[in-house]
Design a protein around this nucleic acid. Structure first.
Lengths: 161, 161
DNA sequence: CACCTACAGGGTATGATATATCATCGCAAG
DNA sequence: CTTGCGATGATATATCATACCCTGTAGGTG
């Protein structure tokens, strides 16, 4: 279970940048990035894979920051609501947002081999979803766009026989 | 909670056609459309909304067809695996497939007002997901493409102030 | 200061969804 | 007959999520 992102990168920067972005946005909007919320965001930023609410809760608990499910869910709700994290429906789990502060419709790619999760963004009106919605007169509020498959790293490692 | 499909249609045909398609496909592939499986498919075809596993279990139970969760989950797994139903990740629930027998990547539209769910199909390579995957070298196996919003019927009823 | 309000958080309990595991049954091929 | 397989029965438990009520604290306002 290595689970890096799909590409090599300066991972320390993921964490510091993500945190910095969250702090900036919270300052702008008068939101409180409290200890628990900040810590949860750090957990998520620290891994390019999805963490379940109870895995997060375990970590919080180990640090003495709370041991009941609502502690984790409240922090996650804050992070998701304010765009610092996304819920991965397919996994019932959560990842840090790759574009914090910008309203967007995330696209989630999940490697079923190593568990890595990557995010990109899209225009909801683009693509099949937008066309389908337009054709039927459906007004989109929120989208869930996710794919399971094999990331380039795993495809290379266990690749075509 | 009326929850019809997005458009008026001959709903009896949804059920008979869906069932007929399932029977045909099962015959072709040597699959067994057993009593429980058939009944669950009928429940799903009977409504253009998603049914939870436990709601299905309740119905099965009322008909004396089983009362433990695995009964419902096994039937649903069969239906999903063989393309007669889809799992709606956003709702943790299930709908009958609108294109049984054809391998496709479903697109799910969920009305958050009336609970109606509609399905269309897409080419996975199309749209933002396909572009994102291609750009990062990700090989897609399964897609989850869902949107929550307002269906034309509800938009018309409670429409723009 | 006294009070109120809003929001974060603690704690308990429970609800809702899903699966692992082992046993049994019926059918059809060998 | 017996063996293998897929379906089903049954029990227990894992996993994910929220309702509810109470407490603490910071800031505004009389």
């Amino acid at each position: 279970m290595s689970a890096q992102g799909f590409e090599r990168h300066d991972h320390a920067a993921c964490i510091t940048d993500g945190l910095a972005a969250a702090e900036r946005v919270c300052a702008e909007r008068g939101l409180q990035l409290t200890r628990v919320r900040r810590r949860v965001l750090e957990y998520l930023l620290g891994e390019h894979r999805a963490l379940g609410a109870y895995e997060i809760l375990d970590r919080l608990s180990a640090e003495g920051l709370g041991k009941q499910p609502p502690v984790a869910y409240r922090a996650l709700e804050f992070l998701v609501t304010n765009g610092f994290a996304h819920r991965v429906e397919k996994l019932n789990a959560f990842i840090a947002c790759g574009l914090p502060g910008k309203t967007h419709h995330p696209v989630i790619l999940i490697c079923s081999d190593c568990g890595a999760v990557a995010e990109t963004a899209t225009n909801p009106a683009a693509g099949a979803l937008g066309r389908a919605a337009k054709a039927s007169g459906f007004a989109i509020d929120r989208t869930v766009i996710e794919a399971e498959g094999t990331c380039p790293r795993c495809a290379g490692a266990a690749g075509p026989a």
